[in-house]
Design a protein around this nucleic acid. Structure first.
Lengths: 255, 255
DNA sequence: GGCAAAGCTTCCATTTTCCGGGAACGGTGC
DNA sequence: GCACCGTTCCCGGAAAATGGAAGCTTTGCC
């Protein structure tokens, strides 16, 4: 038969752990349950490789298989994740204050931290009959658009600011600020005012106001924001509330 | 000791992914930040191996290093974990009902699922001035002691029940039931009553009442419980409330 | 019912990446 | 200054990872 002996090299082609993590990366909010083939395609690796790695991950509980045989993120991974200090730890101490803020304003409240050049939402409380929010707990977003993002960017290291401002900047609405120069002055304003305003930069019917949360050493570690329907209130009316809430959380963190 | 007797063979000694997961397992609620040496010791592997694996995990964001250089669980892992269907998905739909139950009773409310032969707590709402609860979100506990545990065990597959009942059974107080025969009849009662009672089986000053949460197919996927100070109320008075709450969550899940 | 297609699992020769002892490097405290 | 602990780097050897292909199961369609 056609003995095509000149096959490609058979041995390992990359760090194993990297492969496994690539596989886990294939999961996202829109794809919580995937078939083996989907996973292999998304992680760009042969089926047999994906299959073997998934078996190992399954054995440990990092992924599970549902009744239909689809792979999904396992509970064990969630348990581990709940040990992360920045996310869950912060979330727990901040939660009561966020709920107070939600009770007072009846609006959407968000808590977020910075991860690299993006925002990660750690908690989200839906206000009564307020604007529907696009974000999801555990979700990511650009640093330049949202109230929390502007706060976190304004207090980030200069290298991070440069990286974000020099890179491509997300554009969502006609009000989205994409000019680096204009963004720079916005960030300066955030630092001097102690709060940020994102005026219809994500959707044309919403406005958000953010404020920084600091740890014991005074460094900004997170941000809290209110998201309200455009026109329902002025940003300034909210700024005081958000700042007060953020300061209360900061105090709680330092102790 | 015995393994480092003579020069150990140099090649790989086990599945790589297993090693990495062993490393992650070293983190728990009491050890959220560890040094390299601690991690190596807890995962039982040479320092150089632990170091290399941690570098890979760091590069991806599964673990991070704090200012002091200590390793901790990374935010990325938490993000991934928040995609797990049984934990966070369940948590989100159940949360409003749990809060209602907490508002009505002013007591501790807990939501949990079964993972193997243990309970995993998915959400916990602290009641006002109620008994302090030992559990933690993301934490584990034996199936035989708590209100949620008894519910989940009562509706688990027979193999799981056998495994738990034949294995060693945790003992906490003089009221803890450790006799398999007695436990079997308790489980039967849970199934026929539609709720469970754990009377001072964990601590002598607390009592908990649990009820099953079912998915669209009628299978028990989680349990909710109230934890109250012993003597403050009768279990029966609570059972109705807990069952109603559990049924409301079940309905919400089926839609 | 039967055929085909797509997906899942197992097998196995090939070889590359991983393993870990050892040594140098940097901190800190006595 | 010395000892100690934690971290990082290096390198020969060897086992574990790789992926093509074949076997097996399920699904779809005429």
């Amino acid at each position: 038969m056609s003995t095509q002996r000149r096959g490609r090299p058979k041995g390992p082609t990359g760090p194993v752990i990297g492969r496994a993590l690539q596989l886990l990366d294939a999961f996202d909010a829109e794809h919580r349950a995937l078939t083996l083939s989907d996973l292999a395609r998304r992680a760009d690796m042969p089926l047999s490789t994906a299959h073997r790695l998934l078996q190992e991950l399954c054995a440990w509980g990092a992924v599970e298989r549902d009744d239909a045989g689809l792979y999904q993120v396992g509970l064990r991974l969630w348990e581990l994740g709940s040990l992360a200090p920045r996310g869950p730890g912060l979330r727990e101490t901040a939660l009561p204050y966020l709920e107070d803020l939600c009770q007072i304003t009846r609006e959407n409240v968000q808590l977020a931290v910075r991860e690299g050049t993006e925002v990660v939402f750690v908690e989200r409380i839906a206000g009564f009959g307020s604007v529907p929010v696009l974000t999801r707990v555990g979700g990511r977003f650009a640093l330049t658009s949202t109230g929390v993002g502007l706060v976190l960017l304004a207090h980030a290291a200069p290298e991070v600011q440069e990286e974000v401002l020099n890179g491509p900047i997300d554009h969502h609405t006609e009000k989205t600020v994409t000019d680096p120069v204009q963004l720079r002055s916005m960030l300066a304003a955030v630092r001097s005012n102690g709060f940020s305003v994102s005026d219809r930069q994500v959707t044309m019917d919403a406005l958000s106001v953010g404020a920084p949360i600091r740890d014991g050493s005074g460094e900004v570690v997170a941000a809290v924001s209110l998201v309200v329907r455009y026109g329902s209130t002025t940003a300034h009316a909210l700024a005081g509330l958000v700042r007060t809430c953020a300061q209360a959380i900061s105090r709680a963190l330092s102790t």
